[in-house]
Design a protein around this nucleic acid. Structure first.
Lengths: 335, 335
DNA sequence: GTGAAAGCGCTAACAA
DNA sequence: TTGTTAGCGCTTTCAC
């Protein structure tokens, strides 16, 4: 492949001059500059990003970690990140962790080895161990996106207040006249977001002096939703509304319900969480709590670039992004 | 950040020895090796992929180009690629082209500048211009995935035979007793795949001496599907079955139809194309022509690595991957 | 305005 | 088994 050396030879100039011309730096006459540029073009020169990065200690590349590949949430976040990365002329390396510790360390390691300028850790519970993995002998800037760390939060993190959102979601159902509201939880374990959503539901129910009923779907995906609906059918507790802690879960529930001959929202109501594109493709379109994932991605990327550029990071450490209830057709007003 | 120099100093060895130890090469005593490794670990050493790549002329990175971010198809393909990339210990850089020429050149350029070991061009019409962009003074190996080049095909390409698939899809509908079959095309322009699907439909209809009816949805996405259904309603041609050239289009059509009070498949049948995950999440689940995108990704990555490793590429240039009709609930047997 | 040369961190050929 | 050194392609300081 062509190097600046080749160009220099061809142009009868030194590699220093060529480098300057190529990078539009001061100290080259307009004439030589154009000459060099023309030759570079003719020769089909492509700058070697490795050599450049090695020398400059800057790669114009950021790394983004996602838990899984097929998530509409990740895609939305990525779009937001991409928007500002493009602006900043930097490319993105995406790594998938499959919510697995080993894999996560691997991805972090690879990214740091490739000397990314910064890291966005997204949509997956951030732990002390991950923090150590990143910060161990590296001072690479990073931000958290649609997640936060358990315990003390020491990095910029962008996410909604899940507790508040779950509370408002529950209150909305109550306001529609529902009293038998079952929470279909993707998870009820210690993971931060899961816990917050469960607690928000509980708080709202208790405040309204209603009985809580929680069922664990053991997963946030479509199939977990289908399975959990059958379990729901076999249980004795009555419900007029189901509050699912993810949209996919809600879609799974609705799908199985319709399959079983139920009608939504005539027979019971369903409320989702997240507002992924799928939620308005299904019929009936899902009433859900909407997060603006694009914006969450956008904002965290912006924060990261501030860090990279050494700008004062004036923002709060944990930034609560807005959410909003999207009324569609899956919830029925009872009275 | 720690370099081999630091390790060498700390270990009282030369950088050559450290390099050998780190890479598990011959010619280091077990003792020094362990010593070096331990120190590297203590120091939190992370190999500099830039320097390594620069020296070795090999980055253990491949580039993958997709037209858009949120496509379930791309995600599936990527999973297949990832599976074998992991095996080969190489990381993936994904670039999105947004089906835009400029953007595509940009992405290709960036990837080559980052000296990826190979390129997978996926799911987007490959043109002579792209070929030139890649091959201009570079001999970087690449393969085509779920696409091919117009005209002479000179690279390994993995995709189904769209003409055949469309023909079989149409024949299936005919076999179910349908005679008024309208093709809802995402596009009817010169793009290779679009054309093949249209032609497959035409061939089957003509062979059965049935009248063809084609409507252009101007897009393969959900919203195009919704819109085109209204247009369909306003037209005078009757149909008992709609053959949509993408699943999302089909879902859009069904969504709008249900919204308008129609019942599927009681009032009319819908056949999709691709079998993306969404197609079985919707209700009614969509009968569709299934491609195994995971496998298509897997195979093309495999071919690429053969190229990279300099293994003889014994395969045909164009590999037709299998497809299969998935019977679900959106098509009604008329007789 | 231009060029020579050092050096980013690494590997490998060669020497010891 | 180990060390010295050249060089991958680039940027930048310093001298001219």
């Amino acid at each position: 492949m062509i190097t600046i050396k080749d160009i220099a030879r061809e142009a009868g100039a030194s590699i220093a001059t060529v480098s300057r011309a190529l990078n539009g730096k001061e100290g080259v006459s307009e004439e030589t500059k154009n000459h060099v540029l023309e030759i570079a073009d003719n020769l089909g020169y492509r700058s070697n990003a490795l050599a450049r990065g090695l020398k400059l200690n800057r790669t114009n590349t950021i790394g983004v970690l996602f838990p899984e590949m097929s998530s509409q949430i990740s895609n939305l976040i990525l779009k937001g990140i991409e928007a500002i990365a493009t602006e900043k002329n930097t490319s993105i390396i995406v790594g998938y962790t499959f919510t697995d510790d080993e894999k996560t360390y691997d991805v972090i390691e690879t990214m740091i080895q490739n000397r990314v300028d910064g890291l966005i850790f997204s949509n997956q519970q951030f732990t002390k161990k991950y923090r150590d993995a990143i910060e161990n002998r590296s001072n690479i800037p990073y931000v958290l996106c649609a997640t936060r760390s358990l315990g003390k939060n020491d990095k910029s993190a962008f996410m909604i207040d899940d507790l508040l959102a779950a509370r408002e979601g529950t209150n909305y159902l109550i306001k529609q006249g529902h009293t038998n509201i079952t929470l279909v939880a993707g998870s009820i374990d210690q993971e931060f977001i899961a816990l917050q959503r469960v607690n928000g539901y509980k708080e709202a129910m208790e405040a309204a002096e209603l009985n809580t009923n929680i069922i664990d779907a053991h997963g946030y995906d479509f199939n977990s939703g289908k399975k959990v609906f059958d379990k729901l059918l076999n249980s004795t507790t009555d419900f007029s509304a189901l509050f699912c802690t993810s949209d996919e879960l809600a879609i799974g529930v609705m799908h199985r319900a319709i399959e079983r001959g139920y009608r939504i929202p005539e027979d019971f109501s369903v409320l989702g969480f997240d507002n992924i594109p799928l939620s308005q493709m299904f019929y009936p379109p899902l009433t859900t709590i909407s997060q603006n994932f694009y914006d969450i991605g956008y904002q965290s990327a912006q924060a990261l670039f501030n860090l990279i550029d050494g700008k004062e990071n004036i923002e709060e450490e944990l930034i609560n992004t807005p959410f909003q209830l999207m009324e569609r057709l899956s919830v029925k007003r009872l009275k």
